[in-house]
């Protein structure tokens, strides 16, 4: 059956052992038709897939560590994340990203109530819980309770600000530099910065002393 079929399948052999779903077949068909019509090329598709795989929280973590080390950089990052990323050779994409800074008085958390907007160029593809009904519905209403579900308790004296992302403006949290990290270099600081603390549901790791 597969032998007389002329379309190449860029699938891993182990995937071919399970039946295709309707929407997997639709994805494959749309991809093939767009390539055959010259709308996109196979090379472009491969390049974008590689780009998706290359995005991870490491880029955002590098920026946070630089901001902790360098107040001037932090000011530029708070003014324009995309431009500040460019300085570091990081492609933050064309959609504006705004950094919101955690301080002793304010804790920030990001959500997208309408869908799943997320600063993926700086922290990769979103986790499933970010796209889930419970997180999208409740974060704007009872953020402190949602944060406790992540094991994060924000003292009552600290204001919690929730930022609802859109297709045209995404947010990332600039966490507060943890106590005990004074002697660390930029790379060691970046290791303290997790995806979840840039979403605002947790705090950065504390250094092993």
């Amino acid at each position: 059956m597969a032998q007389d079929h002329s379309h190449p399948h860029p699938h891993q052999p182990d995937l071919e052992e399970t039946p295709l779903t309707h929407y997997q077949a639709m994805t494959e068909a749309v991809g093939q038709l767009l390539i055959e019509k010259g709308v996109i090329s196979g090379e472009e598709l491969r390049a974008v897939l590689e780009q998706i795989d290359s995005k991870s929280p490491a880029a955002g973590a590098r920026m946070v560590a630089r901001a902790w080390m360098d107040d001037d950089f932090k000011a530029r990052m708070l003014a324009d994340v995309n431009k500040a990323a460019e300085e570091m050779g990081i492609d933050a994409g064309t959609i504006p990203i705004r950094a919101v800074e955690n301080t002793e008085a304010v804790h920030n958390v990001i959500v997208c109530t309408l869908c799943s907007c997320y600063p993926r160029n700086l922290i990769g593809l979103p986790p499933d819980w970010y796209k889930a009904r419970s997180y999208r519905s409740r974060t704007v209403r009872e953020p402190r309770v949602v944060l406790t579900e992540f094991g994060t308790t924000i003292p009552d004296a600290v204001e919690v600000r929730v930022h609802d992302s859109t297709a045209d403006l995404r947010y990332m949290v600039l966490p507060a530099r943890p106590a005990g990290s004074e002697g660390l270099d930029e790379a060691a600081l970046a290791d303290l910065v997790t995806r979840d603390c840039m979403i605002g549901v947790t705090l950065p790791k504390t250094p092993d002393l």
Binding site: H7, P19, T21, A25, M26, A29
Partner: peptide, 15 residues
């Protein structure tokens, strides 16, 4: 095209 892809798939039909 979806029918062709599904028919040619080694493990077959719609899961």
């Amino acid at each position: 095209r979806m029918a062709e892809i599904t028919d040619a798939w080694p493990a077959g039909g719609v899961a």
